[in-house]
Design a protein around this nucleic acid. Structure first.
Lengths: 156, 156
DNA sequence: TGTATATATTTTAAGTTTGAAATTTTAGGC
DNA sequence: GCCTAAAATTTCAAACTTAAAATATATACA
């Protein structure tokens, strides 16, 4: 009946579905802009940026499996990306003492420098895209997302 | 009073970046779950679901170009997916009277039935994943997203 | 009419991503 | 020590994605 507020008409599940679609649209829009900026201004891609970002957060390096788990992408995926970054001298693999199965991926000095540049631009792009969100908006949004995220981690 | 920009402490851009990363994590988590459900319970994929969903919204069909624009993916992409759906009898292409270049993609009766089943499950999955969001949460979230989306459409 | 331009779609090549299988190594039980 | 299960990673095939080229048709207009 009433499209906006539902006293007892539309089930809440419909409202959840609509907000999910809106969430998806928003994120896809921002992501598309980030991808475009990375491609056009820095000749790189979002997955590469994500890997570099993860490695930058862990200066001692991450095992390949830790990296894929952290980024929530497949093992085979990070293998390929780290291969490419390694070829370009931005990352390297270090053997793990005591476990010859494992390798730790790390950024090189060159990789760290490159990431610093990218990260600065990235923050500015996001700042521009989310420009219209007030501090209150951000805090409320953050809390709401926490609710969903804690549900997710509880399900695993 | 409380100014719009923080005069001390962390710059607002950092808060925006953090909430963006959280937004991304949330959406990726939900999407991964949807993909998993589609694969394990219905032997299909999210891109296929998206195409079927778009076609279900337009019973008279969509031209291939309209479909790709609506889904914001490339022309060649939808060609491949509609090909597959057509092979399986879920979709079909219909010539457009008066324009022999164009074709309209539509769901078949079988495709509509299949989509109804998928859509029901999909709504239930989303409902479960966003279970902890109250009606107020949803409305606030929706308004916040509108702010970002209107910024996006203004930039194009 | 004829011709240039625009539109609609498919094809192609290259790259990404995934899930699963395969490989190698480690750890634990007997 | 030997054997099996688990763990870490890579390889593989299939699906997805894109941008650009190719094909076919339509439209504008001199």
């Amino acid at each position: 009946m009433t499209p906006e507020t539902r006293t007892e008409g539309e089930p809440l599940s419909k409202a959840r579905l609509r907000v999910w679609l809106k969430l998806l649209k928003t994120v896809n829009g921002v992501e598309a802009e980030i991808r475009r900026n990375l491609r056009e201004n820095h000749q790189t891609t979002l997955p590469r940026f994500d890997v570099m970002s993860a490695l930058a957060r862990f200066p001692d390096g991450l095992k390949m499996s830790e990296l894929s788990k952290f980024l929530k992408v497949s093992n085979g995926n990070v293998t390929g990306i780290v291969d490419k970054l390694t070829e370009e001298g931005l990352a390297l693999r270090v053997a793990v003492p005591g476990d010859r199965r494992a390798q730790v991926a790390r950024l090189t000095a060159k990789g760290r420098e490159a990431f610093q540049v990218l990260a600065g631009h990235h923050e500015a792009w996001i700042d521009g895209l989310l420009d219209d969100l007030s501090e209150t908006d951000i805090e409320t949004l953050s809390s709401t997302l926490d609710v969903v995220l804690s549900h997710q981690s509880a399900e695993e």
